[in-house]
Every structure is written in C-alpha cells, then in structure tokens.
Amino acid sequence: MKIEIKDLHYTYPAGVEALRGVSLTIDSGEQVAMVGQNGSGKTTLVKHLNGLLQPTSGSVLIGDLDTKKVPVAKLAVHVGYVFQNPDEQLFCRTIHEEVAFGPRNLGFDASKIESLVADALNLVELSSRKETNPYDLSPTWRKMVALASIISMDTSIVILDEPTTGQDAVNVARIAHVVAELRKRGKTVITITHDIDFCAENFERVIALSQGKILLDGPAGSVLGQGEILAQTYVDPPQLTRLGKRLGLKKTVRNQEEFLSALKS
C-alpha cells in the first residue's frame, strides 16, 4: 500500500510544534530508515501512519484511506507498529497468546491465526518458548516478542521504532534478518533508528528529519554521504563512510567490502 503524506503539521496539546510541514510518498514494498536528532519528530511522524495521532493540518493517506476518517482499528489491518519500548505493548501471559492477540483481533480464523503465529515465532527464533511469560524473558527477547506480535498481523506496512536500541551484535543481526525477510515478502518497512551503521547496511532509502521537517530524502548511499547537512540534525555518517572521506577515497563507501576494495584501488 502506498503512503502519501501531504503538508503534515502536528502540534502537541502542550504547544510543542513537532511537525512543521512534512510531505512525502512511500511506495509499496519500500524499505525506509528515518534518522534525526532526538525530538526531531520521527516518532510523531510514524504515529500518524496508524492514526495514533491525527494531523493538526495536512493529510495522511494509507492507500486510499484517509487517517482522519478511518478509525485506528481499521488502519491496524494495514499498518503494524512495533513500539520503541516493548513493555508498552506486551500484556499477555504467554508468548503464544501475545503473538496471537493481533491476528485474532483482525478476525482471522483459528487455523490462519495458528499459522501466522508459528511463522512469526519462527522468524524471531522463539518457537520453543511459546508458553513462556514474556516478562520472564530478558528485555532483548521481549523486543523480539513485540516484533513477532506485529509480524503475525501480516500487515502490508510494518513500522519499527528504534529496533536495535540496547541490542548486542547478535541480536542486531537477527533484527536485520527479520527486515530482509519482510522485504522479500513485499512488505513496506519503515524504521526509526539512531544506529546509522545498521541503517547503511539494511535500508535503501533514508529520510533525515530535523526540527519537524525533512532535511534529506533519497537513496542511502547519497543521503548518508552528506556529512555536513546531516550534522544539522546531529547524525554522523556511517563509521566506514567517515573513514573513507578522511582518507580521501573518491567513492562514498557504506560497508566493509566497499571500503576495502576502494582502499586497494
């Protein structure tokens, strides 16, 4: 499903102007990373995609659904949102119940629910822990339960709010694998992240926000190379991109292989 945001403004009830005219289109099946300093409006923006927030002015269309007119429950069929903090979204007694809750609410029949749950748990490597209480797991694995509970809803759009926060290298790789699998399935994935290396290695398109507006929007390779502009929103280019620049490599490199082969030539 296509996402169309037109001149979106949002002011919180206390008067903080979090979005100041954002327009963008995300096509079905795109993998987009959103970066920018704390308080730049990233979370506020994605909360408009499933109707958790309503525009102060401007509009948000999910396919042909206007989020101002369609209730959150209807939008939930199309847009899944994994919160930054898993503890804000987990409440069931077992992992199985938790992951089945979403598809059950969407009204799928019992066998469909079971197959969606099995698939989601398999993807996050929790198949063997079905009967465990999510709160008996470490925060790391609770994050994976939160992820599975959205994947099982089989929405065409999946939003991940800072999925790699506090995760070690093994788990970051696990999350990257989930993103790659969703891409294969043709899902739209929108990820908010401060982990620029994760962003460079897993996303094709990068949107940088600054003070409630879009600062840069384009292919990762070109956006992440623009160090001076990114500095305005407190984002550093990926580590190896910076190293390549400092060493005077002509090409903008994004990962180790690109770096090493540019170094040789």
Binding site: D168, A169, N171, D197, P238, Q239, L240, Q256, L260
Partner: peptide, 15 residues
C-alpha cells in the same frame, strides 16, 4: 560472541 566491535576494528582486522 555478540560483543559490540567497532567497524574500524573489524575493517582493520580484515585489512
């Protein structure tokens, strides 16, 4: 082992 390792360290190790 899942430790955070700087990309600079990894790239130099391979280099």
């Amino acid at each position: 082992k899942g430790y955070g390792i700087s990309r600079y360290t990894s790239a130099a190790r391979e280099a």
